[in-house]
């Protein structure tokens, strides 16, 4: 080998900085973290706390100005019948969407995780990823097209001579309405459609972690496929379902666009927040409303964490 003498005390400014960082590894971490911590800490957390702080102020009923004094009065307003209705309605909707999404997702995730091989695996994966990532508004828009009076769904009912069935359904109070596009059912369908992929992926991830040998062991011990599914697969997939439900639940709680475009005039939390901060100019009440999903999700996450759902994320 050629005669080389390396490590000849190099001392450019960068090398000196590198030496210093090597001697002070904590400074390296600090330097790495400073920019993101400043950005997220000041811009994001700062704004968030500023908003939450406002929920402890109230609005003067006569002047419409914000009174900067600590009070729980604004939180009290959440429990007036009209406002409490909004909260209950939103939570029920979020729960319904979550359950429906779990039911529809499971077969897709199960097939993709256990049976799809090679090319089909990619097809299933992209088949979930593409709707997940395609434009939220376009997805909502597509349902506006589907649910319109002159749209494809009504047309289908018509050529199948089942228009009476649709009309009977729409006559049911609460979930029905003038047409699907202004009914709760419509809102529910759009929520379900838009958040469905968020449920499939975590369930698939948790199912893929169940080794085939575990199902073979269950079969070997005398369980029929149904029993293996019930006693082995389902409990192991549960963290995935919970992880997915975190998304569907949280996203439904905070959405204000879907019920505005497809749905009745009865409002959801997101719409209440939006209108209180906007036209009504009641920032304290908007902030208090914004705390509701945070608290609900906090409790939800705490329960989910105890069930081990975060390993499936």
């Amino acid at each position: 080998m050629s005669d080389l003498s390396l490590h000849t005390g190099r001392s450019g400014p960068l090398t000196r900085l590198s030496d210093w960082l090597w001697r002070n590894p904590r400074m390296l971490i600090l330097l790495l973290l400073t920019p993101p911590a400043l950005w997220l800490g000041i811009i994001y957390l700062g704004s968030l706390f500023a908003l939450l702080a406002q929920s402890f102020f109230s609005i003067d009923e006569f002047s419409g100005l914000i009174v900067y004094e600590f009070t729980l009065k604004t939180y009290g307003e959440l429990f007036t019948p009209a406002n409490f209705d909004i909260i209950v309605r939103t939570v029920v909707m979020a729960a319904a969407v979550t359950v429906a999404a779990a039911l529809i997702s499971f077969p897709i995730a199960y097939y993709a995780a256990r049976y799809a091989k090679g090319k089909w695996k990619a097809v299933f994966y992209l088949g979930v990823m593409l709707p997940l990532w395609s434009s939220y508004l376009v997805k909502v828009y597509s349902w506006k097209l589907i649910l319109a009076k002159e749209g494809i769904l009504n047309w289908l009912f018509e050529i199948l001579h089942m228009k009476w069935l649709l009309e009977a359904y729409l006559a049911i109070p609460v979930i029905g309405g003038n047409s699907l596009s202004v009914s709760w059912t419509g809102t529910f369908l759009v929520f379900l459609y838009v958040w469905l992929p968020f449920m499939v992926l975590p369930i698939q991830a948790s199912l893929e972690r169940v080794p085939t040998s575990m199902l073979e062991a269950s079969g070997d011990l005398g369980a029929n496929p149904g029993q293996s599914f019930r006693y082995v697969l389902l409990p192991l997939a549960l963290p995935g379902v919970i992880a997915g439900s975190i998304f569907t639940f949280s996203l439904t709680l905070g959405d204000y666009i879907i019920p505005q475009i497809v749905g009745s005039s009865r409002r959801f939390i997101g719409q209440a927040v939006y209108s209180y901060q906007g036209t009504a100019g009641n920032i304290p009440l908007a902030a208090a409303f914004a705390v509701v999903p945070i608290v609900i999700m906090g409790v939800y996450l705490w329960v989910a964490k105890r069930k081990g759902a975060f390993d499936a994320l």
């Binding site: 704004s47 968030l48 908003l51 996203l251 905070g254 901060q277 908007a286 999903p293 999700m297």
Partner: peptide
């Protein structure tokens, strides 16, 4: 957190 919370926080900030 729901996007609306991020949005309103930033707006009021």
């Amino acid at each position: 957190l729901p996007g609306i919370i991020t949005g309103i926080s930033l707006r009021s900030a």
